[in-house]
Structure formats: C-alpha cells, structure tokens
Design a protein around this nucleic acid. Structure first.
Length: 414
DNA sequence: AGTCCACTGGAATATTCGGAAG
DNA sequence: CTTCCGAATATTCCAGTGGACT
C-alpha cells in the first residue's frame, strides 16, 4: 500500500478559496464600483486626478475593488497616447509614520540599484527625493495607500495631495487613494487633510447575505467539482457570514473549512453538517488566537470570570470579579493590577467576543456599572485556554494552592 | 428640580520590555 | 555588554453619566 495517496477530490481548484485569489469579476459591489469608477474618470481624461478615500470594515472588498479598477484603468489608459499612468500600491501595515511611507514610495520610484535606506535622512530631504522621483516619473501617478489608519501622523496625507499646488511638482499629476478600515480615522484627520484627501469618499458597507451568496457561488464554481456541495451549504455560509460581520473573507474561510472537513472524511459531498462543524472549529481558532494574545493578567481575569461562571455567579460586575482576581493573582505570585486596569482587561475580553457586557444603572442606589458574562461555550474557552503555554505555570500554581472549594471547580475542567 | 451613587472612559504620566544601535 | 528608543502595560486622577431617590 502506498504511503501517499491522492485524496478523493471534491475540489477542482481549492486555491480559489484562498486569500490571494483574485476573481476576474467582482460581484456584489456594483454600486460602489460605479462611484469609484466615476471618481477615477479624470485620469482617463488626462485631468488632475481626484483624491479618493475608501472606508469600510475589513473584508468588504475595498482592496479588491481598488486592485480591480486600477488594473482596468491601467489597461485602458494604454489606449490613449497622451496618458502615461503609473500606479503605486502600498500597504501601510507595519508602517507607523509618514516618514516610513515616504521612503517606501521613493524606493518604489527608484530602480533596484538606487534604493535609499529607510532611516537616517532628515524628513525634508526624503520629501525632496520623493518630489524628484515623482517628477522624473511624470505623467499621472496614482498612489494607493492601503490601511492608512496604521499611520499615526498625517503629514504625508497633507503633503502628497498638495505637492503640485505648493510648487514641488511640475510634470507629475498625483492622485492619492486612501483606504481605511477604521471609520474614526477619518474624523481624527486634521481639517486641512480632510478637505484635500476626502474630496471623494466612498463608503463600503458590510455585505448582506445576498451579496455573500453571490460571492460564494462565484468562488465555489471554480473551487469545487460539480454536485459536490449540498444545496444548503452556500446559503448557510452566507447567512453565518452576514450575521457575524458581513465579511467576505470569513465566509469564504468557512466554506473552505467545511470543504476540508468533508475531504478529510473522504466523503464526496459537503453538507450542512460540515459547515456547522467548520464554524465551530473556526470559532475555536479565533478564541484561541485571542486568548494567546492576552497578557498574563488578561488570562487571570479570564480565569476569574470562568470560575465565577462555573459557580453560576455571572453576570457579574467588575468589583465582584476583583476579589477572585486578586486571589488568583496572588496565587500566581503576581501583583494584582489596580481596578482601573483590570476593567481594561475585561473590556478587552469583551472586544474579543469572549465575554458579553450589559450596562446597568440603578441610580442612586447602585450607580452605573457593567455586568460581564461569558459569551462563549465554556468548553470552547477551556479547550482554547488549555493550549496557552504560559498559562500552565499559573494553572499549576493555582491548582496547588487553591482551597478545596474552588479546587473542585478548577478540577471540573482541569 | 436637584442630589447622589458607583461606576465608566479619557487623559496624563510612569514603568517595563524588547529590539536595534553603538 | 550598555544605551537608547518606541511600544506596550500600568497607574493615577478625574470629569462625566444617567437613572433612582428626595
């Protein structure tokens, strides 16, 4: 018997479900594409391009729409002799300042052999090099800055659109396209940046179930063999996706997970059951990741909440979590955090969707406070926590010191 | 109408940590 | 090895907040 064997293939091309796959047509974003296209029209007309600002949550097609339209734009611009279009696409993830963006842009414009170092120059001379590079390139230059909310100073967002007006550029016409996940980012911009960058704003709303279904169908067409998916699979994935965040990435991942589960069992059909199990598995992964990213004190806070939940004490206000937390912290040989900070950890757990929060107000008697409760299956959280390495030490410490009453609770899931 | 409770959430400030440079 | 920097974490302080109570 051979060691390796081809899987019973339900997939035609599994890669079509991967993150980097780019479909030829973009479905479910018709209206946004129309506005976006109209905003890009001046480029073709040879006019000064608009500055465009795109915003919307993750996975709603902002980047995909930009790539799609700009590649068409580039192609179509080639048909006109008098238009010389350059597109620079820069993802600002990991970049924190305008300075870093400017050096990246300079390097994009320069040849391999002529790159500059990303540190060491005065800001002014980097801008100087940037204007020089842009002017040398000439024609119309569209700069796309993806995830600009990662950058915490907006000088380049001011400089770039104004470069021509300020006399820094003679030949080049620069258009800036900013993409942001974070809606509040736009509000925080200084007024002068807002007026120039946000002259064209396009909002990408979350996908609804219908949009998601269209997207999934498009992908599934390529990814799976015919007759492999049960009828309810795609609608179900779409429904979950729309309910959660309207995020295409997430829905596609779910479809892929369901497919993988089916493949692992060597069945030739993906069913509703697979989707449900896939969802659970993905959810667990998400929680695990969330928990892994927490600090030790975050873990202790979660632990406190977990044991309290097992004792049926939830929902619970933060001051009642405190004594339990303090005890655990001492057992783990850590100084307990100050209440204000502990509340921050609680809200962080809430942010991850691990716990739920309800605001209550009992007026003069109790004031305003929030009540926390576990929002996830206890089993799921425990199994996710078990894998958290640095928790082991804490766990043992607690386990060996804790009094019999809570020991019983801990044993319940240890 | 005004008081008051018990928090919340923002902000200023301090401390610790980790990585790069010297 | 130290030194320095910026990011991440913590602490301290405090001005709201909004519904129950007088």
């Amino acid at each position: 018997m051979p060691l390796f064997e081809r899987d019973t293939e339900i997939y035609r091309d599994r890669d079509a479900l991967r993150e980097d796959y780019q479909p030829e047509e973009l479905v479910g974003r018709d209206e946004e594409l129309r506005t976006f296209q109209a905003a890009l029209q001046p480029v073709i007309n040879g006019e000064q391009p608009n500055n465009i600002f795109l915003y919307g949550k993750t996975g709603v097609g902002k980047t995909a729409a930009s790539r799609y339209l700009l590649s068409h734009l580039r192609e179509d611009a080639r048909r006109y002799d008098d238009i010389d279009l350059t597109v620079i696409f820069l993802n600002c993830d990991g970049l924190t300042s305008s300075y870093q963006i400017a050096t990246r842009l300079v390097n994009e414009l320069r040849s391999e052999s002529n790159q500059i170092s990303t540190t060491g120059y005065p800001l002014g001379s980097v801008y100087g090099m940037l204007w020089e590079g842009l002017d040398e390139c000439g024609g119309t230059i569209t700069v796309v800055l993806d995830e600009i909310d990662h950058v915490n100073d907006d000088s380049i967002l001011y400089q770039l659109p104004r470069a021509r007006a300020n006399g820094n550029l003679d030949n080049a016409k620069v258009g800036l396209i900013g993409i942001s996940n974070d809606f509040s980012f736009r509000d925080d911009l200084s007024p002068k940046v807002k007026s120039s960058l946000c002259e064209q704003e396009i909002h990408f709303p979350a996908y609804n179930a219908k949009n998601l279904q269209a997207i999934l169908e498009q992908r599934a067409e390529v990814a799976f063999r015919e007759e492999v998916l049960a009828d309810e699979v795609i609608p179900l994935c779409a429904a979950y996706g729309a309910k959660d965040a309207g995020d295409a990435r997430q829905s596609i991942d779910l479809l892929m997970k369901a497919g993988d589960l089916a493949r692992d069992e060597e069945t030739d059909r993906v069913t509703e059951e697979h989707v449900k199990r896939g969802r659970r598995a993905l959810e667990r992964g998400r929680i695990k990741e969330g928990i892994n990213g927490l600090t030790e004190h975050g873990h202790l806070v979660l632990y406190s909440l977990l044991t309290l939940d097992l004792e049926g004490e939830t929902p619970i206000r933060s001051r009642d979590v405190r004594p339990r937390y303090t005890r655990f912290a001492e057992l783990a040989n850590r100084d307990p955090l100050v209440p204000r900070r502990m509340r921050d950890h609680l809200s962080e757990l809430a942010m991850l969707g691990i716990v739920s929060v309800t605001e209550r107000n009992e007026g003069r008697r109790g004031g305003t406070y929030r009540e926390y409760a576990l929002d996830m299956d206890v089993e799921l959280i425990i199994s996710a926590m078990r894998d958290t390495i640095d928790l082991v030490g804490v766990h043992e410490t607690i386990d060996s010191h804790v009094n019999t009453e809570s020991k019983r609770t801990l044993d319940d899931f240890a």
